[in-house]
Nucleic acid binder design. Structure first.
Lengths: 340, 340
DNA sequence: TTGTACGCGTTATCAT
DNA sequence: ATGATAACGCGTACAA
């Protein structure tokens, strides 16, 4: 079957009107008499006409497409974020282009370049491995951008993040309250969010007169959490370290896995606290004590702000929007063992 | 700061060449002398030129965009699917437009219309609530489409699915082997995949000379699994039904939740087998016995086939590609209690 | 090796 | 209320 492409000209001819009128019948941007409207609609139906997006895009100078850059869509935190963003987008008649960077800087740069080519009208950027300050500006030009979940130092884009430092403090207060005095932190590289969580936790420890906790790197992955625990296993076994704070739930679960494999019980021997409160946290056993972020609100607010700007309702103003977090006490944390 | 738009004409003028030469310097589709190339590249760099995708799209009649329609991106099965597809796409220099339908038929139709407007070059469709046969054809016209995870009856699109019936049989054989004689199935509405899983399971029961199991609906959600168990709680408590097969892991976890809430132990009192083997399955306690699908292979093969067709390498031919499944025995299933 | 000129399908401007 | 025509920015036959 040969493909026949129906253009607005075909419809116009069939309805015996101009292309202009066909266009306006569709957009409603100027009055069209009922009879003509009827003729046009009939012609469109008969021909099976649908306007080509590519042509509309060129003519209107926009695509009604939003870029969404996330480090890992199979991490359910980002999946939930994507869901919230897509939801808001579709209601405003935008579609979302999914960009999964895998925490890879080159990939993120690639996606940012895509964005610069005006393939999308704007972007929501959850950075996993952001380029340097100056590079980011160069890559993006003046394209509307909002940051979510992760600060990008030097960027003037509006930023939507959870109160990571407060989350760290809450986690610390919780563990300190259980009598833990020596805690290890599993953080993740250069990511601001992880650093803030670590900083908040450390600050609370200092306030309690304790030495700064050891900080390990787990790269935000299950595997990383597992390996991190391995490097301090002796101090865990000896009871020198009695609790672990992981900068996300995945690493916390990895940590628990390794602890149990070493015959250590959670929370009997070691308490573990995570961050995010992904679905996994509630299904895992022991159910994970963690700091909950309101992911969908984060995503929805970021997307709504971007769309408001694209629609000319409100310009994008620099600024950090910080969302409350909440400690969810479950079963992976408890009193220091020698205190029970 | 005012936005200055750089077009190919600006570059051409600055490099003192024609637009044609600029275009070919970029595409490499015809030779350009080294000196001229140098001049053009310099001009592009100085002006910060990036070709506009919208214009390229119109000129070339394509967008290098793939649509991906999934029922629920926050279900980690579909998240993994999306990841695999995006991975293949980006390597072939395509981007993915994420469409999350929420198992809502109207939303799916909306997305299919988007596709028809040639916003994308082709689509991967994981149906959650597909339109009727005839409607689908009407909606899509001749747009390249591949189906994944779910059959759509009446569609001629190449389909990539797991061997759902075999999965059902494996689950049944497993439970039958443990001595279970009365099992309930938690299925999901009109979805082909769920029906095939149910059919395979039922077939194996019949082969063993058993009555056909009761079939409940759980809508593929955690909540649905929970409610489904509730409706047969008495028969579970009485020991009349000793095992449950759920058509996906989420419903299996919901079922377990409700069972434990009712004081029934898994697998002590009731065995539960799921389907998919999402991440959750291995983290939940008891760790979930389930039928594993090779999600990433499914997604990758579907995407690769679509892209091959778009690049003109191989046309899309109707046909079902069925992928092997595998029973993963974990801790949520065991011998029938009165047989131990 | 390089340039000219047209087509892609729509929307915006200006005219009637 | 309707129509003619010019952008929009790029790719590419065709020409030189």
């Amino acid at each position: 079957v040969e493909v026949e492409v129906v253009s607005i000209a075909d419809v116009a001819q069939r309805a015996r009107v101009s292309q202009t009128t066909v266009s306006h019948t569709l957009s409603g941007k100027r009055p069209v008499s009922p009879e003509v409207q009827e003729r046009v609609r009939l012609a469109m139906a008969e021909l099976g006409y649908t306007p080509r997006r590519a042509a509309q895009n060129l003519a209107q100078g926009r695509t009604r497409l939003l870029g969404l850059i996330v480090p890992d869509i199979s991490n359910s935190f980002f999946a939930a974020l994507a869901r919230g963003i897509e939801e808001v987008a579709i209601h405003a008649q935008y579609n979302v282009v999914l960009c999964n960077s895998g925490f890879d800087n080159q990939r993120e740069v690639l996606y940012l370049e895509t964005i610069r080519s005006r393939a999308v009208d704007g972007a929501v950027y959850a950075a996993g491995a952001p380029p340097s300050d100056s590079e980011l500006g160069r890559l993006l030009g003046d394209l509307p951008l909002v940051l979510v979940d992760e600060d990008v130092p030097g960027s003037a884009a509006p930023t939507f993040v959870s109160d990571n430092a407060e989350g760290g403090r809450l986690a610390a207060a919780h563990l300190l309250g259980f009598g833990h005095r020596s805690v290890a932190i599993i953080s993740a590289g250069a990511l601001q969010s992880a650093q803030l969580r670590t900083a908040g936790f450390t600050e609370e420890c200092r306030r309690a007169g304790l030495a700064a906790p050891a900080v390990l790197d787990g790269g935000f992955t299950f595997e990383g959490g597992l390996v991190a625990v391995e490097t301090i296993l002796d101090r865990l076994v000896s009871g020198e370290i009695t609790a672990i704070f992981a900068a996300n739930d995945l690493m916390a679960l990895g940590a628990i896995e390794r602890l149990e494999r070493a015959g250590l019980s959670v929370p009997g021997d070691v308490s573990v606290v995570g961050f995010d409160d992904v679905d996994l946290a509630r299904f895992a056993r022991p159910r994970l004590t963690t700091v909950r972020q309101d992911v969908s609100r984060l995503g929805q607010r970021a997307a709504a702000t971007l769309i408001d700007a694209l629609e000319g309702r409100r310009p994008l103003v620099p600024g950090r929007h910080v969302f409350d977090v909440q400690l969810i006490e479950r079963d992976s944390s408890g009193p220091r063992s020698d205190m029970r």
